[in-house]
Design a binder for these strands. Structure first.
Lengths: 207, 207
DNA sequence: TAGATTGTTAATCGATTAACAATC
DNA sequence: TAGATTGTTAATCGATTAACAATC
């Protein structure tokens, strides 16, 4: 178990987690695969198959304990172990993430941001210190953040990404709108491609 | 053709489009399915199958004409027909989209933004007029935008979304981090769930 | 105990890959 | 014409669904 879980299953795990959090907040402490499936527009079989990729979390005749299942998924997704992240690029998108996005809920703490605009150096933005992008290499080597968030222009994406990976960053959250080709192909990359999302919506309209 | 194309194929179309744009910019006017596949980490069969969901765009012994194929995909994704969009919520994320994101490239023009903060009313942000969210119903009825972009708090998402759809909005680009349940289930929704994306990245690290 | 619901195996469905005749 | 590469059909692979014995 755990190893070689298919990508489609992995991608459903955060959604399960979100729904379990909602149930937890409503003080619901038990749910069956069929009730959860209904809620999430899946099938009960799918729900049980998915969870059984990671182990048996349920109990026959009863269903799943919400608190336990939520904790088990948190463990699987590593939401428990505090991970450190840095922002590369401190423009509007970076600010949007700093101000609105709940990193803590994802088990991530934002430790620094980097930009090329000198007027931002050594300022704090939403409690996060901003430094010169020219110092990022040194910073990463010294502080070993796990995740780099790329919110900088496409043109700088490849160069910066490869520097970061060379210094030991373990994963890249990519908002640059381009597909990165890293020197080290083993580093996971998660792309958030706004334009692809909008184009799919555009396709679906009038169909 | 065109009708009943599987979602996985639809989701690849914007990526094809992006790569064809890149090829076009490099003045490459011809590409084979195998070269395009290599570039995009797909297989040549997949590329040909995908395009043939929409029609025969290639030529035996030659491959695909980049300009023609790009135009054909633009047509399929409705990037050609100018669509109007409004922003609901004019916070940091909305500003990030207004300032960084190339709506035009997606065939969309941003015509207005709406917020509940009075200090923003009747201001222009990055060339986009901001109005009171209480007037959005009236605005949508009068101007018939195609797409509503939800960049407002989770708590307001459902209420606002249902109002918009009732007034004729044709699609919703959802950044609220919640799964919308619309009264009208026929309206397409595209979710951009940051936390799911970050959690998937977190899972992939150390595996 | 009887009812409910899991974990798991088998059947079905859909997507990807392979193969090749058609043809530019 | 010969070589290249498509469009399309058939084979394989993987994911979803159905079924049911195990068991709480």
């Amino acid at each position: 178990m755990d190893k070689n879980v298919s990508p489609v299953v992995v991608r459903r795990m955060p959604r399960y987690y979100r729904h379990l959090c909602e149930l937890h907040d409503k003080n619901i402490d038990r749910i069956s695969s069929s009730a959860l499936a209904e809620r999430m527009s899946l099938t009960a079989s799918q729900v049980r198959q998915d969870f059984n990729c990671f182990g048996g979390f349920g109990q026959q005749g009863y269903g799943y304990n919400v608190t336990d299942l939520k904790a088990a998924i948190a463990e699987i997704l590593c939401i428990t172990g505090e991970r450190k992240a840095i922002l590369c690029g401190a423009g509007n998108l970076a600010r949007a993430l700093m101000s609105n996005f709940n990193f803590t809920k994802c088990g991530v703490s934002l430790v620094a941001a980097f930009d090329s605009n000198p007027s931002l150096f050594d300022v704090e933005m939403f409690g996060v210190p901003v430094h010169s992008i020219s110092t990022v290499e040194q910073y990463v080597s010294a502080h070993s953040p796990d995740i780099a968030i790329l919110t900088l222009p496409k043109s700088d994406a490849h160069k910066v990404a490869n520097i970061l990976v060379k210094c030991g960053v373990k994963g890249i959250w990519n908002f640059t709108g381009t597909d990165l080709e890293l020197d080290d192909p083993g580093i996971p990359i998660e792309n958030v491609h706004f334009s692809e999302s909008l184009m799919v919506l555009s396709y679906q309209i009038d169909r």
